[in-house]
């Protein structure tokens, strides 16, 4: 707790951290809930709303999936910024000089990373819950309310099915998928921050790795080594909370049935490896 308290004191007075956090808190619900309402694809003279969930289960998935992209980039960026700032201002050096051991320092950063992840997951849970209420309904009288809501926001006429209260838990495991996927992303951001020590460089490496892996996947596919891509880090992270099936989207977004356990295990292994290599770097190198 003391280590978390130290990290809290550091970030609470940091203006940039506040700005990014407010951006996250404000934009996430707007994107996760309003994007499915407004984003439409015209097909055969009609507008299709591919991310518009019509059930609670689909709402959990839709909110988790859209939020995961937002968190993947924005929260990873916040984490990178926080760690590299300590190198930039040389406060990491001062913390060690003041008597914090390298183990304590690293633990504090891991706790901070997990706390950000925990709160982000909790926030996505709340948005998912609210999103589910908006996109689905339990009683026939509520159906009218939801239809009014959708009509008010984009003039959309939608048939909303009524459901039992028990459906709330259907698809809730998508939140767990969100947590695991972002655990992978954050641990990669963590390693890159300790590796590069400079904010801009770290962010370039982070996005560079992401893009280069995507290019690598295409090359592997072309050369009949497509199976290898399942074991690459960012691909494994994405497989934990996979993209919706494009064909299925035309008939409305649905949640993937079961957990991709292979992707989950690979993501956890990569997360542990990234933390391990961060520790190795932090202990091996001088803190200048």
């Amino acid at each position: 707790m003391k280590l978390l308290q130290i990290e809290y004191k550091k970030i609470v007075g940091n203006k940039s951290f506040k700005v990014f956090s407010i951006m996250f808190l404000v934009f996430l619900p707007l994107i996760a809930i309003l994007f499915p309402i407004y984003w439409s694809v015209p097909i055969g003279g009609e507008s299709f709303y591919p991310f518009m969930p019509t059930s609670y289960e689909a709402a959990w998935y839709s909110v988790s999936f859209i939020s995961s992209w937002f968190c993947f980039f924005l929260l990873s960026f916040i984490l990178i910024y926080h760690i590299t700032n300590e190198y930039n201002f040389r406060t990491v050096r001062q913390n060690i000089i003041d008597g914090q051991t390298r183990t304590e320092y690293l633990k504090a950063k891991i706790f901070l990373m997990l706390s950000i992840l925990f709160f982000a997951t909790l926030y996505v849970f709340i948005i998912g819950f609210v999103g589910g209420l908006i996109f689905s309904t339990f009683e026939p009288k509520d159906a009218g309310m939801i239809q009014t809501f959708l009509k008010t926001f984009n003039g959309l006429e939608t048939e909303v099915e009524t459901q039992d209260f028990g459906v709330i838990t259907d698809g809730m495991f998508n939140i767990v998928r969100f947590f695991i996927q972002n655990l992978g992303a954050f641990s990669l951001a963590f390693l890159v921050a300790f590796l590069a020590k400079r904010g801009i460089l770290a962010i370039l490496i982070f996005f560079g790795l992401f893009l280069s892996e995507k290019i690598g996947e295409i090359i592997l596919e072309v050369n009949d080594f497509g199976f290898v891509k399942d074991y690459l880090p960012t691909n494994a992270f994405m497989d934990v909370l996979p993209y919706p099936n494009l064909m299925e989207l035309l008939s409305g977004i649905t949640s993937p049935d079961s957990m991709n356990w292979t992707a989950v295990v690979i993501t956890i292994i990569y997360s542990l490896l990234f933390i391990f290599f961060s520790r190795l770097l932090f202990f091996k190198r001088d803190i200048t």
């Binding site: 940091n14 201002f89 406060t91 001062q94």
Partner: peptide, 13 residues
């Protein structure tokens, strides 16, 4: 300890 220049979080009091 003081090593080289004073280092603190610039935005904090």
């Amino acid at each position: 300890s003081i090593l080289e220049h004073p280092i603190f979080y610039p935005e904090l009091s």
